[in-house]
Amino acid sequence: MEAEAPFLLQFLVDWLNQILGKWIPINATIVMTWLVSIGIIILAIVACSSLKMIPKGAQNLLEILIEQVLQLMEGMMGQKKAKFFLPLMGTLALFILVSNLIGLVPGLKAPTGDWNTTIALALIVFILTHFFGIKGKGLIGYLKHFVGPIWWLAPLMVPIHFIGELAKPFSLSIRLFANMMSKHMALGCLALLIIIFSKKAILFAQTLFIPLFLPPVIMMLGVLTCLIQTFVFVFLAIVYISIAMEEEEH
């Protein structure tokens, strides 16, 4: 599990390490993140270079995604706030979706399959949640939420709320990362089985059946997981931010 980056990716990592290694730590994950980012930016520029009233091609694809995210947000936090948060949520959705799906390509690694990436994403959501919570309710109003409705229960309620707030980004990051990584590992283990079985060459027909025909099934499930996890991450981010901003509710 040490050098898990495949050959082409490893080559890219080494090359970038030679150039940028002095200033930034270069990793397979970081290289993949950059690749995904550049891909998304190219897609965006291609789509936006010829925006038309009647969408077509790349524009249509992006519009469907953005419209979906916008619709999701409008139901949660109203039209005005939805417009404000659209760039953040749209970028999150695009980045996570493309990152998840790129992990299914053999030879490439999903950036979201690394805990560092998902922690970074969850951290952004966490910071924005509390920033807009304080901005929306004021510092005192925001802290009041931690104390709860009954003042003498504060010693009990404050730690509970505190831990609850900390658990949000934790579970958010773990959910995405573990889903992506477990799928990646399942595929990796099956690939490992192929190597082991073919080396020993015992019962070739029966034993190779499993590692050769199971990966497509896992990949099909993987596509579903990618879409659902993207939806869940973005949805939860929207829910957290809208809950932090809205007036006294619970």
């Binding site: 959910r175 939806f231 869940v232 949805f235």
Partner: peptide
């Protein structure tokens, strides 16, 4: 789907 994601976590 949301609930399943929570349980799954």
């Amino acid at each position: 789907i949301l609930g399943l994601a929570f349980i799954e976590s």
